[in-house]
Design a protein around this nucleic acid. Sequence first.
DNA 1: CATGAATGAGGGTTCATTCAT
DNA 2: AATGAATGAACCCTCATTCAT
Lengths: 213, 213, 213, 213
Amino acid sequence: MYTYDMAYRTSDKVRQKKDAKRTAMMQTAVQVFAEKGYHAATVRDIVQKAGVAIGTFYFYFPDKETLFVYLYEETGEFLAQSLEQAINSKELLHHQIAAGVQAYVNIALYEPAVIHLMLVGGIGAIPSLHEKRSIFRERMTQMWQRPLDFANDDGNLPDQNSRRSAEMIAGACDEAILNLLAQPDAEASGQAAVRDITLFILRGLGYNTQDKT
Amino acid sequence: MYTYDMAYRTSDKVRQKKDAKRTAMMQTAVQVFAEKGYHAATVRDIVQKAGVAIGTFYFYFPDKETLFVYLYEETGEFLAQSLEQAINSKELLHHQIAAGVQAYVNIALYEPAVIHLMLVGGIGAIPSLHEKRSIFRERMTQMWQRPLDFANDDGNLPDQNSRRSAEMIAGACDEAILNLLAQPDAEASGQAAVRDITLFILRGLGYNTQDKT
Amino acid sequence: MYTYDMAYRTSDKVRQKKDAKRTAMMQTAVQVFAEKGYHAATVRDIVQKAGVAIGTFYFYFPDKETLFVYLYEETGEFLAQSLEQAINSKELLHHQIAAGVQAYVNIALYEPAVIHLMLVGGIGAIPSLHEKRSIFRERMTQMWQRPLDFANDDGNLPDQNSRRSAEMIAGACDEAILNLLAQPDAEASGQAAVRDITLFILRGLGYNTQDKT
Amino acid sequence: MYTYDMAYRTSDKVRQKKDAKRTAMMQTAVQVFAEKGYHAATVRDIVQKAGVAIGTFYFYFPDKETLFVYLYEETGEFLAQSLEQAINSKELLHHQIAAGVQAYVNIALYEPAVIHLMLVGGIGAIPSLHEKRSIFRERMTQMWQRPLDFANDDGNLPDQNSRRSAEMIAGACDEAILNLLAQPDAEASGQAAVRDITLFILRGLGYNTQDKT
DNA sequence: CATGAATGAGGGTTCATTCAT
DNA sequence: AATGAATGAACCCTCATTCAT
């Protein structure tokens, strides 16, 4: 799980209550944005689902666009950090890949709105988001590329454009996970998906998994 | 004497012009939709870019949504058919993959709006489009899966979930191509991209390219 | 039957053809206006029903509003004249009333569009029509009032406000005829309606029909 | 301390104000619809006359058509009930007719917009209104017919088609009242109009008023 | 004469945003 | 803090009208 902490100025335990409400509204907003997309999701949709008045929305957030961009960034941050941590917690490439994929699938199953927001919710929406989106995609790509370059330095990978490989890993994961979420019994297929995805990636990289642990 | 027929004599020429204009407006619309997405693209945006009045739009098309859905379907049809033809024109799996990837990259370089419309333009837009999008993604997946299953029957592939592999191929291609298009010198990198993508996919499939032609 | 003859400038038998077409379009227009009312009836509706192009409409008529007003006036003129003639062709009040009612019913059965245009088609439409409508209603009222005043002078009617009586006769006829037209077997009930209406009016006027022919 | 409750404490007062405003806007709408008719009256006309922004209209009402139909039905209901009550409050036919006419004239003088809305405002407008209009006309006709049938049963009326008589009464009243309203000194002529109309109707029915109270 | 492609003012409606309470 | 009535820019779309062919 993850929480949002937009800048504020109040203090004390009033802050906590305020934070709690803000956080709740943000989570609601993520759900709605993820489900309907930026434009189709109205502020009214959000406040209705959150059970507050429309004025309350504008007490906590400056406007719809700012909130969306913030949510997009925060959610991207959460997603990227989760995968990065999983990857960095391992030493060997095939463990790193497996851990990253596992983390990705976990989030998809546990917080599907995160995936929908990042992958489909915010496209073609606000001009300012194009840049944010590029930044996020870039981060995901580099996240996958780093272990490749390390492995490459150790001579564990055949010669290849690691950048391109990373891009493909990112894209392959996204698509496989989106398909997974589209299934009615997503959770049941989770582990099989992790295995399939990991193996495909490792083979794709030309990584010889035989003689490693 | 000539007057009465005039309207009919020219009618062929006029109809051709009309068709040409409709096509031109559709291409403009694809550009705008691809760039801004369905909601952010206004009819005014389209007609301004096309250099016509707003009424002209409604003379040619019934309404924004219908046009968009039509464009999405047509463009998807074009993209899918192009790749399918390329794939079907070959016999061996590695040739099929290479041809499919090549066709995809060609379209991306030649008609980038096609890719943007299909991959980013129509997300989170109209309810009726969700289904169209699913259909398109499904078609792309099955397009890649078919050659896999054939190769599998021939014993040329290691055991794997071909459906999942196809999903990953589709996603990997999309992402690599989107990244390619984001580069300033996309065209120059086209062939390298085709090679990289193809090889990654073939390796990912576990296809032994050594002992084939 | 009645025809329309808006001002024109051409001549010879070309004029006849032109007139024929113009007249045909006008009759079509009356039908459409009567059926849908001024605003709901579009120029496209009219030309489609007339089987001509939209440009043709503007060759024959300056614009929709002018045509409508003209049609309203002409149709009103036709209706009023028909009734006036019928009334004036008789000498005795009860014959006059009977003839007027008979003429009204005849027109309603034979040209229902005339009635619809005058009574319901052009209300609340164009500001300039308000006046025309008043003029028409006034004419109808005076048309009924004239024989009353004559009969009054002859001492055949009890003391009454003949103006008000005329208004009521006009309104009563309109409503009875509208109801008649709403019936599926309007034609079959025509004669009964004429009798009912005439008798009610004569009684309403206090006209003693017994001792007259 | 007071802040939280404020919104709720005032809520009653606010709701009253809101209701008052809605009512005021409805009255404005009736005026505008009555004056211009459904199509010619724009939502912008209504809000301008009401002195509010256009969004306010859609805060109070779902859309123009729904409001109009509602207003038409409500106004018709009010008018019909008023006359029905007046009629039902009497026993003898000539008292019933007199009371009905008196009520009609009273409403015309006091709320002329009611009459205009029902008689001219909503014609040739929305398809769904044709039916409403028929229903209203039918109700008015039956309202007049009922006392006729009762009187007939008692042998107080000469043989006649009471349905047709009722139609004529309705039409005669409408027209007389419309003419009354068109006069500058309508109010002054009210009582005379009531007398004239009532007498004409009673005579028209063949009702012998001499030997009754 | 006739056509119908093209125009754009204007209408109904939505929805992000403000502010008095 | 919270509310929700009020606002109005901006959207989609219609339709009377024009004009080149």
